[in-house]
């Protein structure tokens, strides 16, 4: 009997170490929300205490505002965002035929500005781009993530996966070293999450503002002493695409609040 138990324990140990080394199975995927303290959760849960909602309000105003030489607002083509934008952010980055590659929600907004509004593109990480992006993504709150389902995206998802597992920087760490092998542990005082993209753009208390996923990825790269890719770089888009496909099925939370 003892012998059998030992075998079972050994089998379990092998199985759990195999789990640690591979991808997180769908049932074990957890939003960053589950790693936070009760105060930060409360801040996100109440829309009147979530500072990200201030950006959503600004985005709503921008949605209605005419812009560019075509003198059109987002609403003139897309109508009521509550129905037309519901679920859209949950499937981004999406494949763009004219570009022949995936584009992020921020890039889509700027493609719309250039093509349909004939307006100047909004700079990455500017207040207006974050506000519009937050407003659009907010319409998908509670909608399960489905990004990466398009078969045309397959090579880009693979590229993102390779990048996720690729060691880089002077510290020689890959994304997976922390976010798959060591989540639930702590890096200094901060909990290490699984890196599931449920709430972007999100309000970080450290930033004192709303920020994009690319800002987050770039600060992780700086953290491992690697040279960060520029905003909008195809490598960052591929990584975002892989991460979204990895968070498949988790509900969107935009705008999330994180420490």
């Amino acid at each position: 009997m003892k012998f059998r138990r030992a075998i079972a324990a050994a089998a379990f140990a092998v199985a759990s170490s195999a789990l640690l080394a591979g991808e997180i199975p769908p049932g074990a995927r957890r939003s960053g929300y589950s790693f936070m303290g009760p105060e930060t959760r409360a801040m996100q849960d109440d829309d009147t205490s979530n500072p990200g909602m201030l950006f959503v309000l600004d985005g709503q105003a921008l949605w209605m505002k005419k812009s560019g030489s075509a003198d059109k607002a987002c609403a003139d083509c897309h109508g009521d965002a509550r129905s037309s934008m519901k679920g859209v952010a949950a499937r981004y980055p999406a494949f763009d035929r004219t570009q022949g590659r995936p584009v992020t929600l921020d890039q889509r907004i700027n493609l719309c500005r250039a093509g349909h509004q004939q307006a100047t593109p909004l700079p990455y990480e500017s207040h207006d781009l974050l506000a519009l992006s937050a407003f659009v993504a907010h319409q998908s709150r509670e909608v399960p993530i489905t990004a990466g389902d398009d078969p045309q995206l397959k090579p880009f998802v693979e590229q993102g996966r390779d990048f996720f597992n690729q060691r880089e920087g002077q510290l020689n760490l890959s994304c997976a070293n922390c976010h798959e092998d060591n989540f639930d542990k702590r890096l200094a005082g901060a909990p290490i999450t699984q890196g599931q993209l449920t709430g972007y753009p999100l309000y970080r208390l450290e930033w004192q503002t709303l920020g994009s996923l690319e800002r987050r990825l770039r600060s992780c790269m700086t953290g491992v002493r690697a040279q960060a890719y520029d905003y909008g770089a195809p490598e960052l888009v591929a990584l975002e695409l892989y991460l979204m496909s990895r968070a498949r099925g988790l509900p969107m939370e935009t705008p999330a609040v994180r420490p």
Partner: peptide, 8 residues
């Protein structure tokens, strides 16, 4: 500027 008020 945007403001969020919560009054019952």
């Amino acid at each position: 500027m945007a403001a969020l008020i919560n009054v019952p």
